[in-house]
Amino acid sequence: MELFLQRLADGLSQGSVYALMALGLVIIYRGTGHLNFAQGEMALFCTYVVYQCGEWGIPIGLALPIGMIVGFALGAVTEVALIRPVAKKSPFAVFIVTLGLFQFLNWLDGAIWRDQPLPNSGVGSVQQQFPSLFPSKDTDFITIFGADIKLQSVGVFVLVLALTGVLFLLFNKTKLGLAMNAVASNAESAKLVGIRTNMVLMVSWGIATAIGALGGVVFAGINHNVNLTLMFTVFIYGSAAATLGGFDSPGGAVLGGLIIGVIENMAAGYADEWVGQQLKVGVAFVVIVVVLLVKPSGLFGTAKVERV
């Protein structure tokens, strides 16, 4: 029972990161119908920025907003300068551009911060480990039903729930959210009621990337460092979460992320011999394939999402 609870907690906190990644994917998908393959690397860049802020002595409470603002700008600029011009040509061109951006950002991170995990205490970095948003020492846990749950796990989970709440309000109670929903539903008509669709798309990419940045920082905190391959698997888990929840459903994305985090940890824990740490990523593969084959619109997506 204790083990189960601990695995559940770990699953939920990792699932929270996937949820953030999936949210970013979904927000972009709803607006433009594009799957942003660079989402993970955009988040990674911001995570490095937050690391750098830490090196300069900026506390994480301030560095995180800086990272998210950088993310917003990165996303917005990407949409305006790279995505919008080629989106007119073909969806394939957009796919290639996101892939090129993936490669470019991954290279850029290495070019600026080298290819070793950071912080590398003693070697060129003043931080001991990547700053965590929540208490993360070995002694920072609470005991629930005899299980020691890390405060970090609780914090991350609560953070994601809070963010989901904020996004829910944004989508359902603000003009921006209404405009985003309208563009997602029918971009042509959105123009005809006076919505600046270009602005909405730009802001969507900005918000998506800022959320991704948050996910990257949280994950680097759990992981204690940031490195060039950090977001590969997070991206694929996030994609699996978005597929499971439905690519046009933000709520589905969050739930999908949590479910996948839990499945992944349970599978790795209980089927140790077969799945273990190595094959955890197989969970994402299986989920993606099965969902796309059985129910392409996901658990909460609308059937409008055409996958065949």
Partner: peptide, 17 residues
Amino acid sequence: RIKGVYLALVTLSLGLV
């Protein structure tokens, strides 16, 4: 049954697995 970027997603996860 799976096309376009979704196939890309499936193959990407295959490459990761």
